[in-house]
Amino acid sequence: MLDAHIVSSSRGVDARLRVESGATLALLGANGAGKSTILECLAGIVSADAGSARLGSTWLHQGRSRLAPGRRGVAILTQDDTLFETMTVGDNVAYGLRSRRVSKPRARARAHEWLDVVGLSGADEARPGTLSGGQRRRVAIARALASEPTLMLLDEPCAGLDAEASTRIRMLLARLLVSVTAIVATHDAIDAHVLASHVAVLEDGAVTEHDSVDAVMERPRTAIAASVAGLVLLRGTRTATGIALDGGGVIAAESDVVVGAPALVAVRPADVRVARHNDVPLRPSARADGVIVERVSAIEPRGDRVRVHGARLAGDVDAATAAQLRLDEPVAFTVPHCRAYGDSRDSV
């Protein structure tokens, strides 16, 4: 089990993370949120200023004292390509074992097996320079796992590849990470869904949500988690009839939240109906009819549908409807009946 509190004031990071043994945590955040810093602090590549991290019974760092990177049992798959160009692929994969004084024949045999596992059978003698981006990523994965780490860190493991290679790497990792304690830093919800059991959402260096994947993806409490999950997050207050949204409008919703308490609603844009405001008679919005009028702030083509964004809401329409809409024009979003949930963070 990993229990970490990473503080790096120079990089504006102050984050707490927990990963159960054998589980995979998705560290979800935008670029610059501090994902790489957290992974590199755990790997010992950069130094944390304060805080502490314990992996099982081993202290990775405590305040300013830290364990040498090579003695942590932490392997990292960095976002940048770090294959050793001067060695063969086999020697790359055997590097960790050779560094721990495993004999050359044994290390090579293990490397050979790992290359089989990642789908690069027989590539032992190849030079990294002759491989494709996806193949190089596989070698890096094999190299990290061959060192038999207690904790595996993966920084955007599926990013920067073409769609097919990216999917194949994700499938490979889904298989390999089953019983490995791991953290996957990503900005892509699909990585979290496929690879992780838990999600920590990172915003400006701090963890703002830390829960199971299902909880975060279905009941997000932060805009970024909602956006990664493809949802629109609405904030409001529970009333007798529904949820009175911050900024006006009332929508119908079931909820366990007590009347008068803050409540959240996550809405799928595909479920929101959008109509020109003139076509919907405007009524005083005390009733929970789910109609919210907002000005159009952006019109975003998404394949055969077009997503219309307002200040808080978004909804999908067909191209013909979209053609009638103009920026800054008021439109009526109709939110379907849905389920609201509380804003407390103790539901882990």
Partner: peptide, 20 residues
């Protein structure tokens, strides 16, 4: 970066110098 990654794989400073 390569040196840092080699160190996480357990290589001593001397080994990082001579192999990387």
């Amino acid at each position: 970066r390569l040196e840092a990654v080699a160190a996480t794989l357990g290589a001593s400073r001397t080994r990082v110098l001579t192999t990387i």
